[in-house]
């Protein structure tokens, strides 16, 4: 099935749910007007990134009115979006929702919360415990939030769970200005998205935010990658953008015929060896 994906490279305001919901709704309307079937937003699109002690104040329960609004909008376009989720036992998660046809189809809670360098997520948020693929009208999909993608096992598990489209919602700070053409962080991500797509014969839709928070820039550069690892669309660097990518449904089929690595991937060997490693490991 051919479809159009929109990557909403927005600039959220830190801690301002109402303003950000308005930004999101505006992007959704633009996406619909441009003929998009799916719109992907960045990590923590509804809240901003360096929340620190604001986390509990901007967290939403899954039955919050803001999410009801997104559900309604998802009757017109499928939506993947990042926010802070609060569970009934008051844990706060860096979550991504996938909404379609008026329902929440999937909630992914970020598993790998970076807490090093300029990152401090695990201080404020609880860790997700699973990677699961889920069915959508575009086939089986897996969601990752930013740092999740830097752990090889995460997209691997999703692909083995049948995902053929990987959505990565990101708030990646720009850093590493050197003599080379692009930002260090952008170059690293571009290698990662393309390589992941190639390894797993999956499409990758990467959406990264822009704007500054306390002097830290987010570099944008959202991209759609075909299952062969080719970039089919890329957003502006450091500027707001709505990236539209026409997705050729046949490309996935052709790639999987041409490079049937996923067909040949041996889950039994992987599981056997991982179990052995786990058994032999000294905890």
């Amino acid at each position: 099935m051919d479809f159009t994906v929109a990557l909403a490279q927005i600039k959220p305001k830190l801690g301002c749910l109402d303003d950000n919901l308005a930004l999101v709704e505006a992007a959704i309307e633009k996406g619909i007007a441009a003929g998009a079937d799916l719109i992907v937003f960045p990590e923590l699109a509804l809240t901003g990134y360096f929340l620190k002690d604001l986390v509990p104040e901007v967290a939403l329960r899954l039955d919050a009115p803001q999410i009801e609004k997104l559900k309604t909008l998802s009757k017109r376009i499928s939506i993947a979006i990042g926010l802070v989720e609060v569970s009934s036992d008051f844990r706060f998660f860096n979550s991504a929702l996938y909404l379609e046809e008026g329902e929440i189809r999937h909630v992914h809670r970020k598993v790998y919360l970076p807490t090093y360098g300029l990152f401090d997520e695990q201080r404020y948020m609880a860790r997700g415990e699973r990677f699961r693929a889920f069915d959508t009208r575009f086939g089986r999909v897996g969601m990752l939030i930013c740092e999740d993608m830097w752990h090889l096992s995460a997209p691997y598990v999703l692909a083995m769970d049948g995902a053929m489209t990987l959505l990565c919602l990101s708030s990646s700070p720009g850093r590493g200005v050197s003599g080379t053409e692009g930002l260090g962080s952008a170059a690293a991500w571009q290698k990662l998205t393309a390589t992941t797509a190639m390894f797993l014969n999956c499409r990758v839709f990467y959406c990264n935010r822009v704007g500054y928070e306390d002097g830290i820039n987010f570099w944008g550069g959202s991209e759609a990658i075909s299952p062969s690892g080719e970039v089919t669309a890329r957003g502006a660097i450091l500027e707001e953008d709505l990236v539209l990518a026409k997705v050729d449904g046949g490309a996935l089929r052709r790639e999987r015929i041409f490079s049937p690595m996923m067909r040949d991937e041996n889950l039994a060997i992987t599981v056997k060896e991982l179990k052995r490693i786990d058994r032999e490991k000294e905890y």
Binding site: V177, S178, G179, E181, G182, G215, I237, L238
Partner: peptide, 19 residues
């Protein structure tokens, strides 16, 4: 220490405007 001055300029100009 050599830097891509076009990119650096874009980030610093954007920083002042935004903040």
């Amino acid at each position: 220490l050599t830097v891509n001055t076009a990119l650096l300029r874009q980030i610093l100009v954007g920083f002042v405007r935004d903040e």
